[in-house]
Design a protein around this nucleic acid. Structure first.
Lengths: 185, 185
DNA sequence: ACCTGAACACCGTTCAAGT
DNA sequence: ACCTGAACACCGTTCAAGT
């Protein structure tokens, strides 16, 4: 006689993300998540190995909720779409977003995004042996800016100022790619 | 009759930094720091407002222990020296370093580094109205890479691979500055 | 099979008390 | 003036027990 479970892993992660969005990462405790799910803290351990696993799950949520760009678009627009999507994710989940920079990029979600960038770079004409490095440099630049922006390191500048900063970052990445295409010819 | 204190703020921060270096940020608890200082946890509250203040102090330690470049050098070499110094700090204190990206850059230590970059950019020929933005972009790029490297996001690549990545980042920053000098002329 | 209650070792922080 | 002891509300996690 198997009773049906009253909640699943998705519900746990959803509750954790909501808490982080509302009250910061420190508010994501096993007890608070459990209360939100409507269950005792110990029940969470069925869906989640421990707290680190819960946090890993939140990062994964950010990465997978984030839409894959339409593969029919030209590579420039796919990269633009990915950058815009990542920025939207950062703005929506500023408390969790910095964790992206502190965990190994080996999860399915981060692999999926990385492969999309690889494909765009190959299509742009970057030599195969250069692609992995270019992706590491691009993602470091992009995440560095977005975490700075989301974490408030840059101070409370107006949206206009931050948008202009973001445009500069995009320009830097575009000319970096152009230089790599040149070097690959 | 004023007894002389058995420890000061510097000793508290030093103990906290040592713990972070040896065992990670999670090991920096008030109790562990106190044990290391040789005192009860409550005694720390004389030197430190609370735990957040302790962590702020660690970030500040990183920023001030970091050497100011010789002002007689040409601006290119001052920026190179600053980049190299920051990378050495990141490698020495990988657990604390990511916090640099998550706290407002308004402390004396971060102001000091920022002003040094401002001066170098001005000397390079970047227009005054452009300087603050260029600094925000440069520091985001640099910190994004260094936190990725220190935090292990990039995986366990060899030192040679990471050095080459770092060279690419330096190149990106150099051509960004060149473009801004051009636009300022 | 799924969830809970009780328990453990720890955490940050307060406050009155000791010297 | 400087530090401690006792206490509080919380934390992550375990394990045996309930249904």
């Amino acid at each position: 006689v198997s009773r049906q479970p009253r909640f699943d892993r998705a519900a746990v992660l959803q509750a954790g993300l909501a808490l982080a969005d509302e009250s910061g990462l420190a508010a994501v405790t096993m007890q608070a998540v459990a209360r939100r799910v409507g269950v005792t803290p110990m029940a969470l351990y069925r869906e989640v190995a421990d707290k680190a696993d819960l946090l890993d799950g939140l990062v994964e949520l950010l990465l997978t909720d984030f839409p894959a760009p339409d593969p029919d678009l030209p590579w420039e627009q796919r990269l633009e779409a990915a950058a815009a999507g990542l920025r939207r994710t950062a703005r929506r989940h500023p408390a969790v977003f910095p964790l992206l920079l502190q965990r190994p990029a080996t999860t399915p979600g981060s692999k999926r995004v990385r492969e999309a960038v690889y494909a765009a770079l190959a299509e742009a004409g970057v030599a195969g042996r250069r692609i992995a490095r270019v992706e590491r440099v691009i993602s470091s630049i992009m995440l560095g800016f977005l975490v700075s922006e989301a974490g408030g390191r840059l101070g409370h500048h107006s949206r206009r100022v931050l948008d202009a900063d973001f445009d500069h970052i995009r320009g830097v990445i575009a000319s970096l790619i152009a230089a790599q295409v040149q070097a690959s010819a």
